[in-house]
Design a protein around this nucleic acid. Structure first.
Lengths: 209, 209
DNA sequence: ACACATCGGATAGTTCCACTATCCATGATA
DNA sequence: TATCATGGATAGTGGAACTATCCGATGTGT
């Protein structure tokens, strides 16, 4: 198909598609002549994924590129696929101005991970994110050291089990990775929304709604 | 204290403080003369909260104003305080272009809430958010109807219990509301980071790391 | 074969947001 | 009295995510 059809079928304008190609979120079409390119269903799938990550999830173009990069990088064992797809996904992201110096919170994260016996990569962005938020919380005198996070971490384990269950039946690694990305990133707002609702309900129960 | 001291103590530049006052995130100081105003510890606390929400959490100025608005609106029972503080907080936020038509997903959310027996406000933004993400997931053929969310919802209930526990000892309603906001919004990235790490660990266990 | 729409590719422009800088008259301060 | 900081107003900046325009080449209908 040509770019106009890709645009029509995806609901994304032609200039925007070109922009995504320039930004290397989407591979260029196969040139059939110097000024004519051919796009296939893969492009359409990928474009929809991009729109979901940027539009639904609100990721930046840069973050989206990283996520898609992780997706392309595998072709290996299921764990590597997931490790890459899940591990590289940059979480929420605050004012992450590169090369953050290791803070004292890193020690807390290490302690937490050790206590839980988790086998996780040293350089996971999630570790840094965790340290960052803990530091942020401290500024408010919220006394929440790593032991306070333990029960949350136990719940996270159960959540992760559900997540992995949902990925079980994937036909091929690439499909699995894509599902992992979708499930991990797109489900986040839903999980947080559930938390809000549950908080409201719990509050009603405790204090009488 | 005057604005320069507020700036020094908070680490926020004077122009930025003025900007926040213009944007009504921060109340203006008490004028002691036409060109001299006085700020107190409340301003400092609030300014730090603003910085956490915008800088650490990455909320937009607009979303931050809503959160702070919820904070100001109470003065009532603990449940109302929490309902307002937690309920009004806009979750993650996608391309929320106002007045979204009720989709078929709303029915699914209703069913979910009914099944769980949750007592939650009809107009919670979290409900709309939930419907929106489910619609987003559908676009990818992720077969996840409301029954698929049930186990996640059960875990959310437990998470909410932990959250409410953490708020128990608050001295006054305003303090409680502020803590609720901090805990709800600032803890989100941490919870998501924990989920990422737990996924990585679970993947290692299942597929051999 | 010929007119005309469409294409890929490049470049420049737009909009929005979160600041940031500059000005000014006034009042505080040494 | 001579700075100096202040509140308030207005304009400007930089980055991000598009969006619009132009070009020459090419496909398409007749």
């Amino acid at each position: 198909m040509r770019i106009s059809e890709l645009s029509r079928r995806s609901g994304v304008s032609v200039p925007t598609i070109k922009y995504y190609i320039r930004e290397e979120l989407l591979p260029a079409g196969r040139l059939t002549s110097p000024n004519q390119a051919d796009y296939d269903e893969q492009h359409l799938r990928r474009l929809r994924l991009i729109r979901a990550l940027i539009g639904v999830r609100g990721l930046s173009v840069d973050a989206t590129r990283q996520v898609l990069g992780a997706l392309a990088e595998q072709q290996a064992s299921p764990h590597l696929v997931l490790g890459l797809a899940l591990g590289v996904i940059p979480p929420a992201e605050g004012e992450g101005t590169a090369a953050e110096a290791p803070t004292e919170q890193d020690g807390a994260v290490d302690a937490l991970v050790r206590e839980l016996g988790w086998q996780v990569y040293e350089g996971s962005p999630a570790r840094a994110e965790l340290a960052r938020t803990m530091a942020g919380l401290r500024e408010f005198g919220v006394a929440l050291d790593w032991t306070g996070l333990l029960p949350y971490a136990r719940l996270a384990e159960q959540t992760a089990r559900l997540d992995l269950d949902a990925l079980e039946g994937a036909p091929d690694p690439l499909e699995m990775a894509e599902r992992a990305v979708v499930l991990t990133t797109l489900l986040e707002p839903a999980l947080m929304a559930l938390r809000r609702l549950a908080q409201e309900d719990e509050s009603a129960r405790r204090h009488g709604g």
